[in-house]
Design a protein around this nucleic acid. Sequence first.
RNA 1: UGGGGCUUCGCCAAGUUGGUUAAGGCACCGGAUUUUGAUUCCGGCAUUCCCAGGUUCGAAUCCUGGAGCCCCAGCCA
Length: 588
Amino acid sequence: MSPTDPSSAKASGSNFIRNIIDADLAANKFAPRRWSGRPGPAEQHKVSLGDTPKIRTRFPPEPNGYLHFGHAKSICLNFGLARDYGGACHLRFDDTNPEKEEQEYVDSIIDAVKWLGFDWGANLYYASNYFDWMYAFAEYLIESGNAYVDSQSAEEMRASRGTLTEPGKASPYRNRSAAENLDLFRRMKAGEFADGAHVLRARIDMASPNINLRDPAIYRIKRATHHNTGDAWCIYPMYTYAHPIEDALENITHSICTLEFEDQRPFYDWLLERLAEGGLLQRPLPQQIEFARLNLSYVVLSKRKLIQLVEEKHVDGWDDPRLPTLVGARRRGFTAEGFRRFADMIGVAKSDSWIDMSVLEGCMRDHLNETALRRIAVLDPVRLVIDNYPEDQEEMCEAPNHPQQPDWGRREIPFAKELWIEREDFTEHPPKGYFRLFPGNTVRLRYGYVVKCTGCVKDEAGNIKSVHCIYLPDTKSGTPGADSVKVKGNIHWVSAKHAYQAEVRLYDRLFSAEAPGAGGRDFIDDLNPDSKRIIAAQLEPALKEAIPEERFQFERHGYFVADRVDSRPGAPAFNRAVTLKDSWSKAR
RNA sequence: UGGGGCUUCGCCAAGUUGGUUAAGGCACCGGAUUUUGAUUCCGGCAUUCCCAGGUUCGAAUCCUGGAGCCCCAGCCA
């Protein structure tokens, strides 16, 4: 199911959903299930022998937007469960509302789920492919007295629904005969009525304390071209009605959704029970299980807000590396494995919890630490001149591609008299504990020589133009004398003459508030003005050959990725995914 | 205020048939190693489970009462 070895997939700890599945499996609940090889009603499945996957879950996005971090939790949950239990997870597009859904979103969702590392095999489905069955089931509901056509206006319906504390009142159309209802419903389908003229409702209980059971609408007239069925239909099923049926047709065992659907579960069960009674759906019926959606600090995940950020151009499109979309995260340099670890780490439960953005960042840092090649980059360059180094001399220094992975080899970095070093690695007035360059101090130029700082040259305004030092010839890394001089400081550098100057984007959190828009503020006002800084950095020459999406650790800085959109062959641009932990600046 | 949920360490989260000292992760704090102030390693980190009573030899787990937070009145999903 996933690119990672299933056997190594560390069984994410116990959680309430696993407990339910364990109990179901122990009770052999799914033994009667049949699977015909494709979704369908009882009649179709019952001629088959059984269903090989032990459980079936599904990830059912509505193709009306881009997937975000919240979806990643759900994807990892559903596909992860299927993987761990020898089951299957379906990718199903819940496309029952033609006004909001587009092919563009279908494509991006497919890309995102694949990128996260999951495989639905042959189980790619569209709710819209079930419209015929849904329609037939609705006729059955009418015939069995469980649904009726209501001809009230939307306003009238709302008015008669009652309130949270008062029961609703029956519609004057509630007791139409089955024959009349059937005739009306067929004419709705035939296109005889205007949008909104009638609606099909389940007949349950207008006085139910659960508002969702007060005769919910299940079909509405809506003339709109559907991305999949075109103009074949002018009536479309509502989510409440469609979703349970989709699950049942697909033989889903555990239909996992978020907490806000909890009140919907009685209807889910009611509907499926009616249909199973009629022999339309096979038992055992799918069961809906609700878990708490992801809440992430410093982030907005609501579709409305994401759209606003894109449309008002606070970010550069849906794949902006600062956006919590999966395409954005990918461009940012986040990894699929990082998301999977994150999902495992935060677990799944029913309490409405908040996860700090630093947890996600930590997962990315963790995975990137293990996998990213090390390279040198000077992001805020100032010139370092080695006064006692011959003018025209050059030599190579050797550095490992990864300190913990000797097998990954080494690369050479050119060294010369003039180097770029980090501006913050030199100071004339060192604070307590500072062990980088300052006049009189000795540091190692990482993978090169030990140098002793002699001072700096400033312009009239007092800005440092260059730092000066002398090197200790016998101290080159890798040579016998390398450790003859012990130093505490170790700074990185790039030869000025050989450096590859590139565009580097330093991304930071999009919002500076933990809960953007909290306390009645406009969330736009919480935007972090420094969430994107574009700089010209001096990089070690090897970085020129980076290919799009190749990720690196820029030593002592963080993890960066060659941008998959703006990089050109031989001229990659880099995005910062996440910084390294920095206990020095934290301590200060 | 009708209905449905939730409440265990700074943040997640096990624990659910009542039974030794309340898992684990993250964060944090020490200390060791380190040519990344990174990584890695080792150690520490809830006499207490929202609160108050009660049952019991024994309760986070059972009972009673209370508090706080989230969700529901679309012909959205």
